[in-house]
Design a protein around this nucleic acid. Structure first.
Lengths: 295, 295
DNA sequence: GAGAATAACTTGACAGAATCAACTAATCTG
DNA sequence: CAGATTAGTTGATTCTGTCAAGTTATTCTC
């Protein structure tokens, strides 16, 4: 079962599990479409009819009829816009907002019934990550927070096991490096960043001191999904800027020959290959490289 | 925004994003309901009409009509069951299976179009975890695999930060403990387990040697969602059995007074509180406890 | 600035989906 | 064996979604 099949399996499971397709939505007498439109209408900046159709993937005619229905029921006011007379400004009435509030409460109650309270937290966390994985939200570079170090270790362990066949001693090394860093480091000269989209972590990069004037780049990792997007370049620049500002005059890093894309990134950013020799580590034969550049 | 609201937000996002409500499903001329029924029919053990209605949350009349339609198109054979003449045995014809195969291919293609290849992997991974979080799949206790150590560190870091206000030095400690364990331990006498539902990890427990005859229980963690389900008891028993089999004659553990439920679990399992004194650690004032029992 | 093109929305016609209820036939229960 | 239950079908009705045509206002083009 490949990734696409897994996603399809989830879709079937989820639609079934939550009854997303239910007609008479939560006994309100409204259809799912009406509920979705109502929800969109209840925003600080109410949308135009056209936006509703586009945003929800509906026929404009249908939206028009639904809105007319809301008007008839006294939930919605529609008056010609003063800026553009083709457009009708939409605004929920107090009664309309009341209906939305009731629907929201009913929806919450229905969900709470299907999902045990204790589970809601994990479910929300994993779904939020899935949402971010689907590309929702902006990527930000931030400082380390509790839990991040573990994630860095997990992803180094998992990705290097898949890509290079490394055994768990590599994960052990990463754990020890990070343990030592967290326990003690000079915040003025040493720092780690996490790239994340909402709660979904996408990459890590660290600058540590190797010598008074020589910095070292470590634990530079970017998830496969974000490779080739320019994120790695942005992270590298952030790290180099910090190292420069912290008074280092040069920076070094160690990597493996098999990381071709990483090598190209370093070369493009002024690093020179200064060392390369075969080693046997983490259960695999490979060629380690040292790269260096002035700051 | 609490967990339930987050889940509701995901539902809105997801239904919109994947166009789950698409009518004329993938240009096949079939509706979503027909497609769902067809998919369910294509199983090794074909369901009865009744099961379809129940399983998909549909009206029995509607299912009957849809099945009749499939029969008319030559996709489905319906003959009275020999066991129970009220029931009609359902079986897709070769043509029917062909239709299902084409639909599956079309669905895969449509998904692949919406989700960039590079992203499919993370999306599948996070959705699989969400599915497990929703309670799908059995819980299993297994040995450590790459990535597990990082997860243990992350969850210790995150949960203790939330529950006890610990700072990152606690995460550092866990990282160092695990780094050392992974790098070197005696597999006959020391062992770690992960409790997981599919790919979603739910807890961890370790047995290590403190002295030749004295074992130590460490890194015992259960996600909030699984507390009170008997999982912790099962994990503890597994660990105690192992320690007994490995020749230890007693076992110790350290915990904090604030972990009331854990304390009750230990007491219920024959542990005695042997030590308790106030300490200042990880940025918090607390009372550490030592517990012990014979094996 | 006139005429064409486009945009925002409405309306009509119609096929298909979902719902409710009534119905047949077989089987189970006590 | 009478009555209840189960599996499935059929009919009437309402609602949804879709396609196409229409109205009015605005913008574009030469």
């Amino acid at each position: 079962m490949d990734s696409i099949d897994r996603i399809r399996a989830f879709n079937r499971f989820y639609t079934g599990h939550l009854g997303l397709l239910s007609r008479n939505y939560l006994g309100s007498g409204l259809g799912l479409t009406e509920v979705r439109i109502l929800h969109d209408l209840d925003a600080t900046e109410p949308p135009r009819a056209r936006d509703l159709a586009l945003g929800l993937g509906l026929d404009e005619g249908q939206v028009s009829r639904v809105l007319a229905g809301f008007g008839r029921r006294g939930w919605l006011e529609r008056r010609p816009s003063e800026v553009d007379a083709r457009v009708r400004d939409l605004g929920l009435t107090a009664a309309g907002r009341q209906v939305v509030a009731e629907l929201r409460a009913a929806s919450r109650a229905a969900l709470a019934e299907v999902i045990p309270v204790a589970r809601a937290e994990v479910v929300a966390r994993t779904l939020a990550e899935a949402e971010a994985a689907l590309g929702r939200g902006e990527i930000a570079l931030r400082d380390l927070a509790p839990g991040d170090a573990g994630w860095i270790i997990e992803r180094h362990g998992a990705l290097y096991a898949e890509d290079e066949g490394f055994d768990v001693t590599f994960e052990a090394l990463v754990a020890e490096i990070l343990g030592a860093f967290l326990r003690q480091h000079d915040p003025a000269r040493e720092r780690g960043w996490i790239a994340a989209r909402a709660t979904l972590r996408l990459g890590s990069i660290f600058v540590v001191a190797e010598a008074p004037k020589v910095a070292k780049l470590r634990l530079f990792l970017v998830e496969r999904s974000e490779r080739g997007t320019g994120l790695a370049q942005q992270m590298l620049e952030t790290a180099l800027d910090f190292a420069r500002g912290a008074g280092f005059t040069s920076i070094r890093l160690w990597t493996h020959e098999s990381h071709r894309a990483a090598g190209r990134l370093y070369a493009r950013n002024g690093f020179r290959l200064t060392e390369a020799h075969p080693v046997q580590s983490f259960g695999q034969d490979m060629v380690t490289q040292a790269w260096e550049r002035d700051l």
